[in-house]
Structure formats: C-alpha cells, structure tokens
C-alpha cells in the first residue's frame, strides 16, 4: 500500500559525497563499508530458532515431551493446533466439490486462525527464514553456490518472479482436478520436517534433486519461483507491522544489502536516487531474515514494528 504509492513518487535527490555517512564519520569509503562485514547477530539468532524448533519437534516425539507435536504441515503447540494455510487452500478447493468441509474440526479452524493471525502480525514470509527447514538448507546451498560460481563459473538462470503466482494457482487447480494434496507430496518443507521427526524415507531423493538443481542451474529456484507456501505467507503478511525499515539519512549507497538479500527487489529504495521518502519499509516478499540488518554499515536498515512508538 504505502510501498506502491511511495515507488511512484518523485525520488529524493541523491546525496552528494560530503553528506554520505563515511565522510561524516571521517572514514575512508572502504573502511566504512567493511565496518560490519563479520556481524552475524541476527543470522545466528535465526539459525538458533530454526534448529531449536526442529529439535523441539523431534524431541517432542522421541521423548514424549508433548510440547510441539506433529510436523510443519500441522502441529500442536502445548495443546493449540497450528495448521498450514496452503494445505488448507488445497483441502478447501477439493472440499468445495466433495463436501468434506463439514467434517473439519473446530481445532482445525482455530489452528488456521492462529497461524494466519500470527503471521499477519509478524510478517508472512518470516515463516520462510525463521521456521522453514528447507530455507536453512538452501542458505548453505547458496554459500556453496557462491563459491562454485567463482571457481567454476557456473551461470545463474533467473526467471520472472511472478511465476510463483502461476504455480500457486496451478497447485490449487491440480489438487482440485486430482482430489489429492498434490503439493504436499512434493513439498520439501513437509518432507524434511517429517523426515526429521518420523525418520527418513526414499522421498528425500527429491530433496537431493532439488538441491542439485538449485546448486547447478538456478539459485533459490524453489523459494523464489515455486513454493506456494511462501506465496501464501506473503499474502498473509502483506500489511504486517513487523518490517525491515530503511533510513535514508544513514544510507551510504554501498549496495551491500542488495548483495546479501535473497529477494533484492524489496530493497529497491537503497539504490542511489531511488528513495522517494526519508523512511521506507521492505515489501511483502521480505523474509525478515536479517542479513541486510546485520550487514548494513550505516545501520540504515533495522527491524521495526510499525506503530510501536505511538504506544509508548
């Protein structure tokens, strides 16, 4: 909303060199730029959350802890159900034909509300980087890819990002046409989650294939162009108050945020002469992973909760 409007406005003039933060701090540009090169605060916190949650899932079953039961396609956190929204969409599309909808329990609807409500506030695609175990694997694949790109000159093949909306509709239609949860059969999130909890199976070969494809052909293919869970979550978190916020005054146009970001188009305002207002927020595709927050030498990018300053 604000995002779209702000992009159409007249851009602010690019700051002259004298006004850039490195000049004001009296550092050389490269010194300033490398200031926070090895800062990984948010990444470490995030990895701890991803691993911790996976462990909690595993131990809940192994040791019968009953804290976080089930898997990422449907679970129960100390008695409260949590239901995946895209699974629900597929289920409802089939149910519309068969009338199964009447059987769905109150727990199911409550679980769906909890998830939709939570991610509507905390930012939809937060799920991707803070919960999804496939994202965690893909991050490591990315690192390896970065190394291989340099060494073996692998080419990256990119596609149009709106592919995922086509896949999103396509998977719902496929579910409707075949009367089965087609996406859940090939969903790496569910597969990895279940493999961790209930033990591995042959289906992990699919994950291997996917990883190899992303490694050798197209970087982050699944997350960027296919995964309808991420697309659904982006829709859910469209108006989320939990955002990455950009402060025009502190930006030094170094472009490091664009390099570390998985979805650089959400940081369009960090380019020289693009920002249209003093404060910008990243759009719905932002996974709130915190790489840019960690990296930004001028601390121009920060986590922020819209409206929290008005409360106090």
């Amino acid at each position: 909303m604000i995002f779209k409007k702000s992009k159409d406005k007249e851009p602010l003039p690019a700051k002259p060199v004298g006004q850039l933060p490195h000049a004001q701090e009296g550092l050389s540009y490269n010194e300033w730029r490398n200031k926070r090169r090895y800062n990984h605060k948010w990444r470490n916190i995030r990895w701890a959350v991803v691993i911790g949650l996976s462990l909690l899932f595993m131990l809940s079953f192994m040791l019968d802890l009953s804290i976080l039961e089930g898997s990422l396609s449907g679970s129960r956190l100390v008695g409260f159900y949590l239901i995946d929204p895209f699974n629900t969409l597929q289920l409802l599309s089939i149910s519309s034909r068969t009338g199964f909808i009447a059987l769905l329990t109150m727990n199911f609807w409550i679980g769906l509300m909890i998830i939709v409500g939570f991610y509507a506030i905390m930012g939809g695609r937060t799920y991707c980087s803070w919960i999804c175990p496939y994202h965690f694997i893909a991050e490591w694949v990315d690192k390896l890819r970065g190394y291989m790109e340099k060494k073996y000159k692998i080419k990256n093949h990119t596609f149009n990002r709106s592919l995922r909306y086509v896949f999103w509709v396509g998977f719902i239609l496929l579910a409707f046409a075949t009367s089965s949860l087609v996406f859940e059969v090939i969903n790496p999130v569910g597969i990895i989650s279940r493999a961790l909890i209930y033990g591995p199976g042959l289906i992990l070969l699919w994950i291997v294939a996917l990883v190899l494809f992303e490694l050798l052909y197209s970087k982050r293919f699944w997350c960027s162009y296919v995964c309808p869970i991420g697309t659904t979550m982006a829709m859910v978190g469209k108006a989320s108050p939990m955002v990455v916020q950009f402060d025009y005054e502190k930006c030094g146009y170094c472009g490091e945020c664009q390099k570390v970001c998985e979805v650089p188009h959400v940081l369009w305002f960090t380019k020289r002469g693009k920002a249209t207002q003093k404060i910008h927020t990243a759009g719905a595709d932002c996974t709130r992973c915190g790489y840019c927050v960690d990296r930004c030498p001028g601390k121009a990018l920060t986590y922020s909760f819209k409206g929290i300053d008005k409360l106090t």
Binding site: S60, S71, S73, G74, S75, I83, F100, A175
Partner: peptide, 18 residues
C-alpha cells in the same frame, strides 16, 4: 473417512502417529 476422502483430507501431519 471413506478412502477417496481420506487421501486428500489427511494433511500428513502425523499427530495420530505421535
């Protein structure tokens, strides 16, 4: 439920297993 409904009605969460 009837098998034709079971195939899609089950979201594969595994809560019953646990």
């Amino acid at each position: 439920a009837k098998e034709k409904d079971f195939v899609y009605g089950c979201i594969k969460c595994g809560l019953c297993v646990q």
